[in-house]
Amino acid sequence: MTAGSRAAASAALRISNLRAGYGKARVLHGLDLAVEPGEMVGVAGPNGVGKSTLLKAISGLMPRMADRMEFGGAPLKQSPVDAVVQGIAHVPEGRRVLADLTVEENLRIGGIGGRVQDFASVRQGVVDRFPSIVPLLHRKAGLLSGGQQQLVAIARGLVAQPRLLMVDELSLGLSPTAVASISAATVSSCRELGASLLWVDQNLAILGKHCDRVILLRDGVAVDIDPRDTGATNSAYF
């Protein structure tokens, strides 16, 4: 284990009665959610059901109201800077790598905002877990394929030494092989680094395969489901 991984002790996320939305469109109506330390949680549901909104509300990117919002026992402030400092890293939908920066620079950016003490060793720990990144380190991130960009975005999240990694639509626009390998690398990295994972995706099967628990968002509230139970999933998607 590297120095970086030891420091990344996990913490529990506790949310109750979360309400959030865009202007008129209230998307989340009183959602309750708990993520235990070290737990891998998948969030599924069709488009527009509020999956991304949930992650943005947690990292403080959008206005929200909740009865309780705590991470590691401390209240979550409505500020992305504080979220990163508290140990929450958010990998946004569409990857959003910084296209004009090299992969190496993208990783460095990931380490600036957070609570990283020894960036070099944390970075090395992350790069070791994503060996396919190594040959790309000096290329511009904008010139990479979708799968490569997704990998960079996740690595950029991990170098912030998060206690909770949030990934939005990992599988979006990627081929099944790419999805399979990136998912495996992400989940194993989180387990090794001791971070919990909150992973939002439309791809229910991939969540079921990798996560400890899958939640279905429906009508702005969350329901625990068994991803193999097609009856429950059909009612959400069809």
Binding site: P80, A83, V84, V85, L98, I109, G113
Partner: peptide, 11 residues
């Protein structure tokens, strides 16, 4: 390049 992403990364 991306003010929103910069915010999200805690800059």
């Amino acid at each position: 390049e991306q003010p929103d992403t910069a915010r999200l990364l805690g800059l």
